[in-house]
């Protein structure tokens, strides 16, 4: 009963707010601006002691705290997931990509990826890296199939000054632009820090695909909904590692809970000088890199 009442309260708040904005509907831009200032004032309080979620009102925060989603043996208030990538250890074997596709039923072609690996190569005497990814047409042609991924050995005969592989995946930003631009509320930031997609609710406008600075989103054509890495939410809520971490043979992918000082990721961040990608975007990513070169973005 208490739960129901609370729902009504929050719903009513929602209606009155929308009603007010509905009047302003004529100037949609105005409405968006008003909403965001309102959010700034009252909703984006997650920097306070309360650690409220992204775009979460106080009553919704209380609800999330007291009645977390019914996930067996899991309380989303007790975890703060984070992810690390050690560029120096990645061998570009792409087992992570194939594991991810299997684990999450990602479309099996070269245009849809929840995670991928990039190869940066500085040839002798060159200042700029030549970059290609696992989904590069030449690499696909080399394998002869879009179901398996492997880098071709195109630099075998070249004089290479410096080269390295960089795994990419969703940054699960603290200020996710994808959530900001989602018109329906089909994507959202969970209390444990993971940005999730509600495939039952997404209507496939792909605005989030446009908004993501890291290019991690795509449209799953089979589902007609957006597609994105969620750090294998179904695994981490069961105490498992994400599939890519599970299969990484060299340990260049590190995952864990920031609330636990001894978790791999806590140690990874503590013992290394970590960077994030595209910090100028203001998204505050939760994906940390060690050994990322200047050209990596």
């Amino acid at each position: 009963m208490i739960e129901q009442e609370k729902n009504e309260v929050t719903e009513n708040c929602g209606i009155s707010r929308r009603g007010f904005l509905g009047l302003l509907g004529a100037g949609a831009a105005t409405a968006a601006v008003v909403a965001s200032t309102e959010s700034d004032a009252s909703m984006l309080g997650h920097k306070s002691d309360k650690k409220m979620g992204f775009q979460q009102s106080e009553s919704q925060y209380e609800e999330a705290l007291n009645n977390p989603p019914k996930i067996p043996n899991y309380d989303w208030n007790k975890h703060r997931w984070s992810y690390g990538v050690d560029v120096d250890r990645c061998i570009g074997c792409l087992r992570c990509m194939e594991a991810c596709k299997a684990e999450n039923s990602v479309q099996e072609d070269a245009n849809h990826h929840r995670t991928w690996v990039e190869r940066y190569v500085y040839l002798e005497g060159q200042d700029e890296a030549i970059v290609d990814s696992s989904a590069d047409p030449k690499n696909i042609e080399n394998v002869g199939s879009e179901l398996h991924f492997r880098f071709d050995n195109r630099y075998e005969q070249e004089k290479v000054e410096k080269a390295f592989f960089v795994p990419k995946l969703c940054n699960q930003c603290d200020e996710p632009s994808c959530v900001q631009v989602c018109p329906t509320g089909a994507t959202f930031k969970a209390m444990d820090g993971v940005v999730l997609i509600d495939t039952k609710y997404c209507f496939g406008c792909q605005y989030c695909v446009q908004a993501c600075p890291y290019g991690v989103r795509s449209l799953n054509e089979q589902r007609g909904t957006a597609e994105k890495c969620n750090w294998c939410y179904h695994r981490i809520t069961k105490g498992l590692n994400p599939a890519c971490v599970e299969v990484c043979p060299t340990g260049s992918r590190v995952f864990g809970d920031l609330n636990d000082d001894n978790s791999p990721i806590s140690q990874f961040i503590r013992n290394n000088k970590v960077t994030v990608l595209k910090s100028e975007m203001g998204n505050k990513p939760n994906l940390y890199y060690v050994g990322a070169d200047k050209e990596v973005s």
């Binding site: 929308r18 409405a31 631009v181 018109p183 329906t184 496939g204 054509e221």
Partner: peptide, 23 residues
């Protein structure tokens, strides 16, 4: 263009106002 055109009314039912598209 929508991936799920049958859900076209969702942004009207639950508009997320921080999205420019919700309006």
């Amino acid at each position: 263009h929508l991936g799920q055109p049958t859900r076209a009314f969702e942004p009207i039912i639950t508009p997320h106002w921080t999205s420019a598209m919700a309006a």
